[in-house]
Design a protein around this nucleic acid. Sequence first.
DNA 1: AAATTTATAGACATAGAGTTCAATAAAAAA
DNA 2: TTTTTTATTGAACTCTATGTCTATAAATTT
Lengths: 210, 210
Amino acid sequence: MVQPKEDRRIQRTRQSLSTALLKLIEERGYDSLTVNDITEQANIGRATFYLHYEDKEQLLLESLEDMFSQLGDSIAPTAKVTGEHNSITATRLVFQHFADHHRLYRVLLTEKGAVMVFTRLLKILSQVAEQDVILKDVEQPKTGIPTHLVAHYVTGAILGLIVWWLNNDRPYSPEQMAVIYGHLMDPGATKVLGIAGAQLPDLSDVLSKR
Amino acid sequence: MVQPKEDRRIQRTRQSLSTALLKLIEERGYDSLTVNDITEQANIGRATFYLHYEDKEQLLLESLEDMFSQLGDSIAPTAKVTGEHNSITATRLVFQHFADHHRLYRVLLTEKGAVMVFTRLLKILSQVAEQDVILKDVEQPKTGIPTHLVAHYVTGAILGLIVWWLNNDRPYSPEQMAVIYGHLMDPGATKVLGIAGAQLPDLSDVLSKR
DNA sequence: AAATTTATAGACATAGAGTTCAATAAAAAA
DNA sequence: TTTTTTATTGAACTCTATGTCTATAAATTT
């Protein structure tokens, strides 16, 4: 499992397997795929698979790891800008990422087994919550709330939006979603994804655009 | 698979299987469990399992369904109260539910395979977000944002908190979490889980209590 | 008690996982 | 180019778990 990345064959094999897996997931879901399916799609011997990965889950994890770092890389530069800044950018890039890979993520976020519990909980709690959903007011003073907790709160909220967005065939653009998110997180409108930023566009303008 | 719920043996068998599965999940995780493990723990013949369920996933789904409706039932009465109302109650009940079954949910929300993607994404995005996390201000005007979208936003946020809470051994009580959530969702403090309600307790008071 | 339904153990067929190995192909080094 | 090293391959093989079936036993209902 420890590989000297030099040899081209290794890189090609791994690349092929990753590509094959992601393609198959979009077409047929993840759970039902066998190692044989993947190696066949990749045109690679089944024995070869085990020279590189322990099981299909490890392959998936490494493949996703690549995608996640792509996402991280695209956000990083915007996050480093301090002070005045177009705050929607970072959030928009997040939604853009999920739009770019929407078929894949829709499977992974929806499929039984894979994320079944998250989705299931979302659905159930949504029903309870959406009965009397109202929004919120007022301002946020400095609090003693742990940073990690807030981060989970924020990312949970975004993931919630993304699941909705993907399951509803993305009726808004990534830009619109970013603005919506900004307004939800900060009804008065100033900071998005925790990054200090400029004024948010007027919400009704944005929603009517499409 | 269609059962006349009358016969006591059926109820006992199903109950035993459900209990056995949930217990085993807490002890050994979900993925590695076999049907044989479950029936052995339940003291039931393996063939009997298949008289009731197609596979272990279906058993899990039905078992969780029971738990979810328990949760729904406990929240329902508080949600029906309109107007003035102790708004923390509903949220507190949600956290209480996860506390009651924390071992189980911790596995289900953390284990590879099961909810791996959600957890993984949470972790990655958290790292990006928590670098410059700041909070928000101002008030929320009436918007044209779809209700379902808001519901997903809200429940995503709660799930994010819950994942953090469970993975950090619940350093706060359900009550405290409810207050924290209320302050995050509504920095000025008024409505929680979308339910119109009374004033939130002062945050610094609540956090220092334990 | 009789009739009906469910539980059970054990046997069976099947699929897919994961390993091994000798032969071959391809890449890197000389 | 030649040599050397390394990766790929397919086939055979073991193993584990799934899912089904049948005849028998046990519990439940009427």
